[in-house]
Amino acid sequence: MMSRGAKKRAVQYSDLILVDLLHLDWKNFFKRYRVDFFGFIIFLLLMMLVIVGTYLIKNIGA
């Protein structure tokens, strides 16, 4: 029977956050998922910028 430690070692990680979603490699998170993570953050910031921009435009002349 496989020990608990051996079971843990048997987990196969990818480099994609969504694929590993239920068993993320937290220890090497920024190394393994850096493209996913930083791209996601940049994308999110751009979307926030669109909302803030719309808010500012709608207030012009108010």
Binding site: L16, L18, V19, D36, F40, I41, F43, M47, I51, T54
Partner: peptide, 27 residues
């Protein structure tokens, strides 16, 4: 009024997930 914009912005908060989705779809 302007709040109708959410009929297109429904994907706005989901959009960053496209970055994560693309390599999965390709692979």
């Amino acid at each position: 009024g302007l709040s109708g914009i959410w009929y297109q912005w429904l994907y706005l908060f989901i959009s960053p997930f496209y970055w994560l989705k693309l390599p999965i779809v390709r692979r």
